[in-house]
Design a binder for these strands. Structure first.
Length: 642
RNA sequence: GCCCAUGUAGCUCAGAGGUAGAGCACCUCCUUGGUAAGGAGGAGGUCACCGGUUCAAUUCCGGUCAUGGGCUCCA
């Protein structure tokens, strides 16, 4: 069975048909067509439970705050949320106890969920009366139906009915929503747009059984334990400082990890015919005007006026320069590059290129800056300064398929080595696009051909490509089966034109090359964050910043310990020694907490016999062996697996 | 950027309108011990920063900064 095939079989996806290029009617059908085909599989049952529990939450909120305005409350992965607006109260986690108590009461009342429909006018009148502006907005915008779905919960011991506009489906009664827990509350813009009011979103999880709920909560705990921010501190890998938000400091061990990955990738790419380069960080705005970043990406860029920067003028000079536009003061507008591609365009253009030079593969691990919104920064996952295992391939249209095929091999090889399954997705031309249909046809065919050559399943996302070219996305699965976007292969028909690139073809005519943007790890920062969590900080030997720790039982074996350390180091092993006067049990515990793959215990016995006692982080006590035997073993394990 | 929460020793966290505590880590000494914490002592904090209220603020209030959870998945 193919490696990637395994993913597809292991994690069946609901047949979610959500590819639609036109809006309106198609969108509507879509909305009614969520994975809710009346089947009895787990997904569907859970979906009903979660959807129903969202209703229970909404009802509870309105019991406690009768004037609360409800927005929407869909089921999501592992749970549900409900968006709410309460005029005179701000929900916080302190409200959870009370809310959950009220929800449990509703569950206990075992109210039925009854679907019915109301005439449109009736529901509108009701919502106008009760000031449910968000429901009214939904009716106006996305529910054209003359008869609107209503889900009713008759109240126990009275004629009252609590209801919510809803298309269903639900479980039969609230009694089946027993196993839930509210998790967090956050802000969320109505319709996800920042010009809309900010609502309060309450997230919860819900399951079929108590055990499932407990398992899920336990999984959250486990994930928290391997959070890369915590491990980064515990293992001394990296740090942050208030004075450089979003910019990691790589401490010696983290830097080692970084360097190991960067170096290995560089070597691999050189083998694959790439040429590493090193390029500037700061550029005249002309570069970004040419590339289009100035127009489309400026808000995410760091930029400044050269004169202002050089003379250190205060705010006055700054505002004056701004008031007069970019160049009135005579100083250049400068920007820190957010991507490497424009640099590589310049490198291509630096010489007259022939078709014989193609494909030209330029690799660059340059430092990039992106001024991400402050609220989006998060550990190594979202940073403002980073670098990538970036490269751009300049090639002819005919070369696309072969290049992409090689890339797919490379990506597979790398992620296989990390034991991370990868799923493939092809995104094709969007409605708004640049380039002729012939070009797109050829390019999409080339990508399909390369994908087919892998013999693996892949998903097609019609219309999801960028306006400048189709792309292949990769979903990487970590040890907790979470997905991450790391690798990318993106064709670009536009950038070469913006930079007026050309090569001389065999016909002695100029032709515009195709550019392939590609990365395997993506940003090193984020990828290391993912690896930390994937391995829970217990890196394989080849990656471990400290591979072996030599520890002595007492002073009497110190000399032998130092000898062993020297031998390890001269064999290129990253080794340290703990010669302190702590007891061996203490040293082992310390070393284990630091997740060092091998501990060598050196006592008088080992000294006399010329051996080392090996304790493996993963396999425990391996007993004594000659120093040479251990060296052979650890050197072998230090080789990168790709 | 917006909403909510948080910010006390290197780390994890107590605490209270009257100028601060624990465990671990750190340092010193004792201990020479064989596979997950040996013992004793010591040092360490402008309680994130700025302002306000108060006789008195780390504690209450406001602002700033940072961190965390969110902000496409549309009844």
């Amino acid at each position: 069975m193919s490696y990637l095939g395994r993913v597809a079989t292991k994690r069946p996806r609901p047949a979610l048909v959500r590819r639609t290029t036109d809006h309106g009617a198609a969108m509507q059908d879509d909305a009614y067509d969520l994975p809710e085909a009346p089947s009895d599989d787990e997904e569907s049952k859970l979906y009903r439970i979660r959807h129903s529990t969202a209703h229970v939450l909404a009802q509870a909120v309105q019991r406690l705050w009768p004037h609360a305005r409800l927005a929407g409350g869909p089921p999501v992965k592992d749970g549900f949320y409900y968006d709410i607006e309460i005029d005179d109260h701000t929900l916080s986690e302190e409200d959870f106890a009370q809310l959950e108590k009220t929800m449990k009461r509703i569950v206990k009342e075992n109210q039925p969920f009854e679907m019915t429909t109301w005439p449109r006018e009736k529901i509108i009148a009701h919502y106008q009366r009760t000031d449910q502006v968000y429901k009214l907005d939904l009716l106006e915008r996305i529910i054209p139906d003359p008869e609107v779905g209503i889900c009713q919960n008759p109240q126990k011991g009275s004629d009252d009915v609590w209801f919510d506009m809803c298309r269903g489906p639900h479980v039969p009664r609230t009694g089946q929503c027993k196993h839930f827990k509210l998790l967090r509350v956050s802000g969320a813009y109505w319709r996800g747009q920042s010009d809309q009011p900010m609502l309060q979103r309450v997230y919860g999880t819900a399951w079929k059984t108590r055990e499932q709920l407990d398992t899920y909560l336990h999984r959250l705990e486990e994930a928290k334990k391997r959070d890369h921010r915590k491990l980064g501190r515990d293992l001394d890998l990296f740090m942050f400082h208030d004075w450089a938000p979003g910019a990691p400091f790589w401490l010696p061990k983290g830097e080692d990890l970084y360097h190991t990955l960067a170096r290995r990738m560089r070597d691999l790419l050189v083998q694959g015919g790439y040429q590493p380069v090193r390029t500037p960080l700061v550029f005249d705005s002309a570069l970004f005007e040419t590339s289009g970043h100035w127009e489309h990406y400026r808000e995410n860029m760091y930029h400044f006026d050269e004169r202002h920067a050089a003379h250190g003028h205060g705010e006055a000079a700054h505002t004056q320069a701004q008031a007069h536009g970019d160049n009135d003061q005579g100083g250049r507008q400068l920007g820190l590059k957010p991507m490497n591609c424009p640099c590589h365009m310049l490198i291509f253009k630096h010489k007259k290129r022939s078709y014989r030079d193609l494909p030209l593969r330029i690799h660059d691990q340059g430092v990039l800056h992106r001024n991400e919104l402050s609220g989006t920064l998060s550990g190594l996952t979202r940073v403002r300064q980073f670098s990538q295992d970036d490269a751009h391939i300049f090639c002819t249209q005919e070369q696309i398929a072969a290049e992409v095929e090689a890339l797919l091999h490379l990506i597979d090889k790398v992620y296989r080595a990390f034991d991370m399954p990868v799923a493939l997705k092809l995104s094709t031309r969007p409605a708004e696009k640049l380039g002729s249909d012939e070009l797109w046809d050829a390019a999409e065919d080339a990508l399909r051909q390369a994908l087919d050559a892998t013999g693996r399943p892949y998903e097609i996302k019609e219309g999801d490509g960028a306006f400048y070219g189709p792309k292949i996305d990769f979903d990487v699965y970590d040890a907790l089966e979470r997905t991450h976007q790391c690798a990318t292969v993106q064709l670009d028909f536009q950038l070469p034109r913006r930079f007026d690139l050309s090569y001389v073809g065999a016909d002695n005519q100029p032709h515009v090359p195709v550019v392939i943007h590609r990365a395997v790890f993506g940003s090193f920062e984020r990828f290391i964050g993912i690896l930390i969590e994937h391995y829970a900080g217990a890196f394989p030997v080849w990656l471990a910043p400290e591979q072996v720790r030599v520890m002595t039982v007492s002073e009497r074996s110190e000399a032998h310990g130092e000898g062993v350390l020297r031998a390890l180091k001269s064999a290129g092993i990253k080794a340290t020694a703990d010669l302190s006067d702590a007891k061996i049990g203490y040293k082992i515990r310390e070393c284990h907490n630091q997740k060092v793959p091998y501990m060598l215990i050196i006592g008088e016995r080992e000294r006399d016999e010329g051996t080392v006692s090996v304790r493996s982080r993963d396999d425990g006590d391996l007993g004594a062996m000659p120093v040479e035997d251990f060296l052979t073993r650890v050197v072998a394990e230090s080789l990168p697996p790709f």
